Amino acid sequence: MNKAERLFSLLTLLRSKRYAVTANQLAEQLQVSERTIYRDIQSLCASGINIEGEAGVGYVLRESGQLPPLMFSEQELIALELGMKMVQAWSDIELATASKSAAAKIKSVLPDRLKNENPAPTILVPCTHKETEFSTFNKPIRQAIDKKEKIELVYHDHAGIQSKRVLQPLGLVFWGKVWTLVAWCELREDYRNFRVDRIDKLKTLGQMFETSGNKCLEHYISRYSSK
């Protein structure tokens, strides 16, 4: 990594931190010496970047109108493009639209050399599902998760047998082919999984619920990943 790349990486790290970060922490992440970090901080300050702090205490980036545009490496751009294509192919319409908007914003801050490049795609993410499989229910489920609002759904199992459940939705998990809703089932008083493509009807109930250390997505993951 040359100095210019290192300075951009250092600035990106500082941008991502809300609080002061020490030279030792920065050095570990960039895999350089603390002395190099001190010199690079001085170089950024000399170029007009508003960095506050001192050796032994830590550094924090303050708001400034002189920050250079966000930069990405070629591999970072490939990773971002791949991720956004996956969102567009496998999520609901709202997230797909947001992904396209994000892609346009990222492109707007790229240098002209990268903006004008349009290489043939080498990694494809084909959309192989029916649009209604996810787009019908993923959005209201996401909204219910965000609001902590109970939902009622009519669901059919692999044999086609229907059941009705009142759920406290906790998270959505994508398994590479199907989306699964992780929820607290009020009938079973325990966690249950529901394939989104097997939901026949869904409605929000306008009733709020609370999560806790023993009833949340993180607890579910820790509980079942340890088995």
Rank of each mutant, 00 (worst) to 15 (best):
Ala4Ile: 12
Ala183Ile: 05
Ser9Tyr: 02
Asn2Met: 11
Leu10Gln: 09
Lys177Met: 04
Leu26Ile: 07
Arg62Gln: 15
Lys139Ile: 01
Lys105Ala: 11
Ser47Met: 12
Arg188Thr: 01
Gln75Trp: 05
Gly48Gln: 06
Ile49Ala: 04
Phe8Leu: 09
Leu30Cys: 08
Thr211Cys: 11
Leu114Glu: 13
Tyr38Glu: 13
Val109His: 12
Arg223His: 10
Glu63Lys: 14
Lys203Trp: 06
Ala55Gln: 15
Pro69His: 08
Glu94Thr: 04
Glu117Arg: 14
Ser101Lys: 14
Gln29Leu: 10
Gln66Thr: 12
Ile78Tyr: 12
Glu63Ser: 12
Leu44Pro: 07
Ser16Ala: 15
Met71Gln: 15
Pro140Lys: 10
Arg195Asn: 14
Ala120Thr: 12
Leu170Gly: 02
Gly83Ala: 14
Gln143Met: 11
Phe72Met: 07
Lys201Leu: 09
Ile123Met: 13
Asn193Lys: 11
Lys100Arg: 15
Thr97Leu: 06
Arg223Ser: 11
Ile37Phe: 05
Leu124Cys: 06
Met208Gly: 02
Glu133Ser: 10
Asp197Lys: 04
His158Tyr: 11
Ser91Ile: 02
Thr97Met: 12
Val178Leu: 12
Ile151Tyr: 06
Lys107Met: 07
Ile145Arg: 09
Arg188Cys: 03
Asn50Tyr: 11
Met208Pro: 01
Thr132Gly: 01
Pro169Ile: 02
Val166Ile: 13
Gln42Phe: 01
Phe174Asn: 04
Ile49Lys: 10
Ile78Asp: 13
Leu110Trp: 11
Leu217Asp: 10
Tyr155Trp: 14
Val21Gln: 10
Asn138Tyr: 04
Tyr224Gly: 01
Arg39Thr: 03
Asn214Lys: 13
Gly83Gln: 03
Ile78His: 14
Ala4Trp: 02
Cys45Val: 09
Gln42His: 08
Lys203His: 13
Gln25Ala: 15
Ala183Lys: 07
Arg15Thr: 06
Ala103Phe: 13
Arg6Cys: 01
Phe174Cys: 03
Arg165Gln: 11
Ser33Ile: 02
Leu14His: 11
Ile37Lys: 09
Leu217Gly: 03
Arg195Phe: 02
Thr180Ile: 03
Thr22Met: 06
Leu153Asn: 04
Pro169Phe: 10
Ile151Thr: 03
Glu218Met: 11
Arg15Asp: 04
Val109Cys: 15
Arg18Ile: 00
Ile93Gln: 15
Gly171Thr: 01
Val154Ser: 15
Lys3Val: 10
Ile151Pro: 00
Val60Lys: 15
Gly213Arg: 15
Trp179Glu: 02
Asp200Pro: 00
Ala159Met: 09
Leu26Thr: 03
Thr36Asn: 14
Leu70Gly: 01
Cys185Ile: 00
Tyr59Cys: 03
Gln42Thr: 06
His129Met: 05
Cys45Met: 14
Ala27Asn: 09
Val60Phe: 04
Ile49Asn: 08
Ala55Leu: 10
Pro111His: 13
Arg62Asp: 06
Met84Ala: 08
Glu34Phe: 00
Thr97Cys: 03
Glu5Ala: 09
Ile221Trp: 06
Phe134Gly: 08
Gly48Arg: 07
Arg113His: 11
Ala102Glu: 00
